[in-house]
Design a protein around this nucleic acid. Structure first.
Lengths: 156, 156
DNA sequence: TTGCTTGCAAAGGATTTGCAACATG
DNA sequence: CATGTTGCAAATCCTTTGCAAGCAA
């Protein structure tokens, strides 16, 4: 927490950006937030702590955080940008339940390695990737026997 | 082409939906279109063939096509829904160049298998997935020595 | 003082929806 | 003819932007 603030502080001065109470508050809330928070969700919390803050400031701050390397953008396919904490965090992908929305962070070295190879096979140098595994968690699978309807966005 | 129209026709009657000239035209254009077309792009073509068609009709039709199993939604991360032809097509993922936007369709059985296993490890039954590999193609890599700046959306 | 930041509201892009007129089965 | 369908425009959702006023350095 202290360390992250320091990093952000350095990022600001390095770019001649300014340290403002708004930025400090939003950073605080972001660092305490649960994973995969959206700008809207973050704004809702921040607003309660300081109703004078505008949502544009929150959007702008999330961009800054991503640029500073403290946040990472994730996109679950609903066209809502979500941000997760990214400092000193190992890279990971997401497993998402189509039933209840529950998410699990996953990594698999074999997959990562194969991704690199696939890219190379086509002459690409891999820079990054997005992998989202959608499925049904244990709980939701039990309910399926009733009349669970899956909203499919992708065809496996 | 004939077959796909038949499938769509059956889909329509099965659901008590109607066969209209607009739907036929849009289906025609979609079937002839290049991969990964967006609603906007499809509308631009359709409009030239029949300027009286509204874009809402195109949006509605793409939804129908996806429901009928003829189209598949893909999302390259820019929040623009794209559709690709999905009938009798083998499943594949995408390799996208961050420099020029060029896309390559890829499949890797090892990755597919590992995805299933990872999901199972967490008690999930995999229904589908989205995997986008971002990188630099050969051409864009050459330019990088000059002053290519990569817009990173995800951190690898 | 300089010029980065702010909140506001308006604009933006992509997609959806309400509705009256219109076709299809 | 009953009801699905259309085109239009307005509405929606999330996000960005222009701007004048406000602050940090």
């Amino acid at each position: 927490m202290r360390e992250e603030k320091e990093i952000f502080g350095k990022y600001l001065s390095r770019h001649n950006f300014r340290d403002t109470p708004q930025r400090e508050l939003i950073l605080d809330v972001f660092l305490k937030s649960k994973e995969h928070i959206s700008a809207e969700e973050l704004y809702d919390i921040v607003k309660k702590l300081d109703p004078s803050i505008g949502q544009a400031t929150v959007y702008r701050m999330l961009k800054l955080l991503a640029e500073a390397g403290l946040a990472r953008e994730v996109d679950f396919g609903d066209c809502v940008k979500r941000y997760e904490y990214n400092y000193n965090q190992p890279h990971h992908d997401h497993l998402i339940c189509r039933g209840c929305g529950k998410t699990v962070e996953v990594v698999d070295d074999v997959i990562e390695e194969m991704q690199k190879r696939v890219a190379e096979k086509f002459g690409f140098e891999l820079t990054d990737h997005a992998m989202y595994l959608y499925g049904l968690c244990e709980n939701c699978r039990k309910k399926r026997t009733n009349k669970f309807v899956l909203t499919t966005y992708f065809v496996f």
